[in-house]
């Protein structure tokens, strides 16, 4: 018996955030989800991102690779306006989500971040219970109407993050008490609880052991059914394993963007070739 039936009321389709996730069967040719055109980013006088054009496809994992300081994380943070919090940061050019300019004055960055979720390099659970970590987003965005709906969202998000089995009997324990890999999956559960359309992941596995990494990669693979995922990673093998599209950044430029298979078998640009094969450029 589902929670909704238990309450004797709501039809399942209206149970809130999770039900809004589009079905996987919609996957034919991936559609354009986000675009960047002539995007430049400045930190004060420092020109960090130079004239980047890129398309982020729906139901696709896009990997951003490149050496440290090449601007891949900076660019990732433009996609949900995380750079707004940095005073000296200035973003120009056009960035759209479903064709709408995300830097338009009418757009509320908080609402935008509910649609474009983010997972960071270091697991950063709130100093709250496991339950509250996941429930936080749906609560502040008013995505659920009652406790039963919220329970449902929390359970489903934890299940999708393949953490439910490990924490279902201790949801009231602090999230910070979990292992590193579990914390990162908790953060992923928290990010998907608001049913975002795009999930940005900034080196989500760099602090994890190989088994936890494999779990997260498997999760990324499953999440692709419903989301558009952008992942920044220093592990080229990881980019090759999880993504369908790869973008190579170098010194603030987007050097090459192509199918992942193409990038890793026969890249077009010599700089890409040197980077992925581990050569001195």
């Amino acid at each position: 018996m589902t929670v909704a039936e238990d309450l004797g009321g709501d039809a399942p389709a209206e149970t809130g955030a999770v039900a809004r996730i589009p079905s996987a069967s919609a996957r034919t040719a991936p559609e354009l989800k986000m675009t960047a055109r002539s995007c430049d980013v400045f930190y004060g006088d420092n020109h960090a991102i130079k004239n980047v054009d890129v398309d982020i496809l729906d139901n696709t994992v896009t990997a951003f690779i490149g050496p440290s300081g090449c601007g891949k994380s900076t660019f990732l943070r433009c996609l949900n306006r995380m750079n707004d919090t940095i005073d000296i940061c200035r973003v120009t050019g056009e960035l759209t989500l479903d064709g709408e300019d995300i830097y338009d004055a009418k757009v509320d960055p908080v609402q935008l971040r509910a649609r474009v979720g983010m997972v960071f390099q270091k697991p950063n659970p709130f100093p709250k219970s496991i339950y509250d970590n996941v429930a936080y987003g749906p609560r502040i965005h008013g995505l659920v109407r009652n406790k039963a709906d919220l329970d449902d969202v929390v359970e489903q998000s934890l299940r999708r993050a393949s953490l439910w089995g490990e924490v279902s009997d201790r949801l009231d324990q602090p999230g910070t008490g979990l292992s590193g890999g579990q914390q990162q999956r908790l953060c992923i559960a928290r990010a998907i609880a608001t049913a975002p359309e795009v999930l940005l992941m900034d080196e989500p596995c760099s602090a994890l052991d190989p088994i936890a990494t494999a779990r997260v990669e498997e999760l990324i693979h499953e999440l692709r059914e419903n989301y558009s995922i952008v992942i920044v990673t220093h592990s080229m093998q990881q980019a090759a394993r999880v993504s369908q599209k790869t973008a190579f950044f170098h010194l603030g430029h987007l050097v090459e963007y192509d199918d992942t298979t193409k990038i890793f078998t026969n890249p077009h640009d010599k700089r890409t070739q040197d980077y992925i094969t581990g050569r001195i450029g």
Binding site: M236, Q237, A240, F264, T265, N266, P267, Q273, I276, T277
Partner: peptide, 9 residues
């Protein structure tokens, strides 16, 4: 070494 691109070929 997990070679890629030209090294793999």
């Amino acid at each position: 070494r997990q070679p890629v691109a030209t090294d793999l070929r």
